[in-house]
Design a binder for these strands. Structure first.
Length: 415
RNA sequence: GCGACCAUAGCUCAGUUGGUUAGAGCGCCGGUUUGUGGUACCGGAGGUCGCGGGUUCGAGCCCCGUUGGUCGCCCCA
């Protein structure tokens, strides 16, 4: 109602790569989060909340200065006090920072879970957004392979309860301890250097920044070279070998299906030992639905005590897209159609009684009275209650099947 | 950051080789029909054709730019 036209602006568009959710997709999103919250309790993971903003150093130092996430995808800005702040591009580093600053070592081993928005300045694509949302689970302060296994069993049960386990497979690898990883990395660099002339341009860049990533390159020119590269197995120390064996034994004992993928590496620098991804071919180019691994060196790198830790994150939008069409039941218990305005008071009493009694109820009382029944009939509900006049008397009719309908009718009849 | 395709009513879309006043379905509002009924019919509201420039007697249609979307590359959950 602005009288001053100059007060109006052209409606701004939503920021690129962000989304507004309403209805079906919002319900799916909430269903993923609700399921996660339920399953997380079954595994004894505590709820944790950490800030959306952190000092830039939290991410820049921990993820690896040369990773794309740090080098070109962070939303960083100087606040009014001149401090460089970054919108979190992932959960792990912030949780690690909180673990140190709050002295959570006293609770080790600490199992925590959280979910919320993350921000990455990327080109939007199917299953990839600039503001996106993840579920996250971490076990801090445990160097036991049992922790890795527990986290994976947790992830597996979550996917099963969401009904999307079929078509999603757990792929697993080990990156070894620091000693194994360094030896393997050196051998890889040597191998790739020998084939330098045949690598793709992208992989030549990777050779300097993160040679491990050449292993999972999709470029056909890289595949023969990557496939003939040495596996880590030959470089694993006995200790690293035993660790991986214990993780897979734990999975087998819990009945979790998995596949070894010796080519699986992780994008962020902090990973050691166990690395895993739950992958699918149903999301186009964004095949990873849940991923993570062990990051024993991260907390120390952030200035904390040497602390072993392992965790995973899962894209909520990606999980929501995989949900079957029929998993969301947002039917109301009852819909009331007011077919005669003289009975509005009666209908309103029925509405209040139903809602107070725990019945999800909606009322249709506007527009042409003779069309309200049809309008109400289109709203998904267990019971359709019409309130009107019949033979000069107030009259209530209830249509519907099942227990909820009968229970709702009982409430209305008791008025 | 690179590439391809796309953008017309609230939604999903049509719109001929460039040619009067840009259409349909759904949804919304009103009327009629039906009258324990989820039906059918009639009417109405609603559009700077994403935005800016250009070509042309004339542009929703062709060209350039721009913004956004979608899908790949890359990256990652």
């Amino acid at each position: 109602m602005s009288k001053d036209k100059s007060a109006r602006i052209a409606t701004p568009q939503a920021v690129r790569g962000t989304q507004d959710m309403l209805g079906d997709f919002a319900d799916r999103f909430a269903h993923v989060v609700d399921t996660f919250e339920r399953v997380r309790r079954l595994y004894g993971f505590k709820r944790v909340e950490v800030p959306v903003i952190e000092p830039t150093a939290v991410f820049a130092r921990s993820l690896g200065e040369t990773t794309d996430v740090v080098a070109k995808e962070m939303y960083s800005f100087d606040d009014r006090g001149g401090e460089s702040i970054t919108l979190r591009p992932e959960f792990t580093a912030g949780i690690a920072r909180a673990y140190i600053t709050n002295g959570w070592q006293q609770f080790a081993p600490l199992k925590v879970a959280t979910h919320g928005p993350l921000f990455r300045y990327e080109r939007p694509q199917k299953g990839r957004y600039r503001q996106f949302h993840q579920l996250d689970a971490e076990v801090l302060g445990s160097d036991s392979p049992l922790a890795d296994a527990e986290l994976l069993v947790f992830a597996d049960q979550l996917l099963k309860e969401l009904g999307i386990a079929e078509g999603v497979t757990l792929t697993l690898n080990t990156l070894g301890d620091a000693e194994s990883r360094d030896a393997w990395r050196a051998a890889l660099v040597e191998h790739f250097e020998a084939h330098r002339g045949n690598l793709s341009e992208d992989s030549l860049a990777r050779l300097d920044k993160n040679p491990l990533r050449i292993l999972d390159s999709k470029d056909p020119r890289d595949r023969p070279i990557a496939d003939s590269a040495p596996d880590i197995d030959a470089f694993l120390t006995g200790e690293a070998q035993d660790f991986f064996g214990a993780v897979t034994a734990g999975l087998d004992a819990a009945g979790v299906a998995w596949e070894r993928n010796a080519r699986l590496v992780r994008g962020l620098d902090y990973y050691r030992h166990t690395a895993f991804e739950f992958v699918t071919d149903r999301l186009g180019a964004q095949g990873t639905v849940l991923g993570g691994g062990r990051y024993d060196g991260l907390i120390e790198a952030l200035g904390g005590p040497p602390t072993a830790a392992v965790g995973w994150a899962a894209g909520i939008e990606r999980l929501a897209m995989l949900l079957a069409d029929d998993v969301i039941d947002n039917r109301l218990d009852a819909v009331i159609a007011v077919e005669d305005d003289s009975q509005l008071a009666l209908a309103t009493r029925a509405l209040a009684a139903l809602r107070n009694g725990g019945f999800a109820t909606e009322i249709v009382a506007s527009g042409s009275p003779r069309k309200r029944f049809d309008k109400a009939a289109k709203i998904p509900a267990h019971a359709l209650i019409s309130v009107g006049i019949r033979d000069g008397e107030p009259h209530i009719n209830v249509r519907g099947e099942g227990d909820r309908s009968k229970a709702a009718e009982a409430v209305v009849r008791a008025l």
